[in-house]
Structure formats: structure tokens, C-alpha cells
């Protein structure tokens, strides 16, 4: 555990909590892509199956349970409790265009051809692109609520901090995992355009709206 890893985890946790609270307090999931949230629930489910097979630490187990629990709670709020506020017409990204290639890639490029390992690899690949339906939705509507942009910023920052964590681990532990690193780079790059808008607009007190 190093400082980048810890702040990355906390940033991830902050993102998840911000989104849950935003939906709960406003009693609305307007502007939130339910599809991205379903993808994140799939990501956590397929990655954390090792909860059933191995114990690493109390920190590890509790964070995994919190992430996966919050992911399903978010999906529940969007598709059941506040379904009436869900903006399905604008959430039109075709997720099969992500899941099918990512599934194929996980079968082809993995560390070992074992069920849990393939599912772990699938979750790493899927996480890297799971935000696309949300970004697509924002580009379609041309705007995002400020609280939604805070959520996206924390979520993007988390994987960027993990990149620094991997540099640290390579330098001090001689350890690296190419699958995680390449997917983490892709994931972070997808947020770059958003990071730019966040810094130039939201942090200056303006609402995030895209030019028509």
C-alpha cells in the first residue's frame, strides 16, 4: 500500500458515494447513465468473485463489499426506486458494442486460461470503457449537473492515481501487470477531454455545457 494507491481507493469511494447521495438527496437520476452503472456493477461482480475464494485483508474485503454493495444500490435507485426520473431516451449507447469485444479480448489476452482469471481480466477491460455510456449521454444532452461532474472527476482521478501506484510498485517492488497498466492507461485517457472541461469550466464556477 502506497499513498497513490490509498488516495486512489479513497477517490473511487468518494465518486461512488457522491453519486449515491446525489440521486438519493435529489430523488432523481436525471443525467445519469443507468447503462454505465450496470456496467460498473458487472465490473465489481466479476472482479470480486475472489471474495469467495481468498482473504487478503480486512481493508480489502470491506472495500470490495462497499464498492459492490454501492454499485447495486445505485442500479436499484436508477431502475427501480427513481425509475420515473431515468432519462432512458438519452442513455442510448449500445453496451453490447462494449461487452462483446471486451469479452472476446479477455478470452484471448489473459494471464492464464482459468475461469476466475478470465473474469478478472474481463472486469479490468470492461472497467476501462464502462464510463463511455455516461460520457456519450453528456455529449448528447450537451450538459451535466455540477455534482455529476464532481462524480466523474473523482472516478477519473482514481485510475490516474492507480497509474502512479503502478509506477511506484514497479520502481520499489519490481512488480508490474501489463493488462492492468494498458487498460488503466486507456481508462485514464478517456477522461482527458472531461478533465480539461472540468478544470476550465466547473472549477471556475461555470456549469459544464458543451457548445452546440
Amino acid at each position: 500500500m502506497n499513498v497513490f494507491r490509498l488516495t486512489g481507493d479513497l477517490s473511487h469511494l468518494a465518486a461512488i458515494i457522491i453519486l449515491l447521495l446525489k440521486i438519493w438527496k435529489s430523488r432523481s437520476c436525471a443525467g445519469i447513465s443507468g447503462k454505465s452503472q450496470i456496467l460498473f456493477a458487472i465490473v465489481f461482480t466479476t472482479r470480486y468473485l475472489d471474495l469467495l475464494t481468498s482473504f487478503i485483508s480486512l481493508y480489502n474485503t470491506s472495500m470490495k463489499l462497499i464498492y459492490v454493495g454501492c454499485a447495486y444500490a445505485t442500479v436499484y435507485l436508477i431502475y427501480v426506486k427513481f425509475r420515473a426520473t431515468y432519462d432512458g431516451n438519452h442513455d442510448s449507447f449500445r453496451v453490447e458494442f462494449l461487452i462483446v469485444p471486451v469479452g472476446g479480448l479477455a478470452v484471448l489476452i489473459n494471464h492464464s486460461f482459468a475461469p476466475l482469471e478470465i473474469l478478472w481480466t474481463f472486469s479490468i477491460y470492461l472497467e476501462s470503457v464502462a464510463i463511455l455510456p455516461q460520457l456519450f449521454m453528456i455529449s448528447k444532452t450537451g450538459e451535466a449537473e455540477t455534482i455529476t461532474t464532481h462524480y466523474l472527476f473523482c472516478l477519473g482521478l482514481y485510475r490516474a492515481l492507480y497509474l502512479f501506484n503502478w509506477v511506484w510498485r514497479f520502481y520499489f517492488e519490481g512488480f508490474f501487470d501489463m493488462i492492468a497498466i494498458v487498460a488503466g492507461l486507456v481508462q485514464t485517457v478517456l477522461y482527458c477531454d472531461f478533465f480539461y472541461l472540468y478544470v476550465t469550466k466547473v472549477l471556475k464556477g461555470k456549469k459544464l455545457s458543451l457548445p452546440a
Binding site: M1, D50, S54, M63, K64, N110, E173, D177, I179
Partner: peptide, 10 residues
């Protein structure tokens, strides 16, 4: 992954 040291990561 399964036999990588990455398992402690989230």
C-alpha cells in the same frame, strides 16, 4: 490476477 500480486488491489 490469480497469481499476480495485483490481487490486493481493488
Amino acid at each position: 490476477g490469480t497469481d499476480s500480486k495485483l490481487k490486493d488491489e481493488l
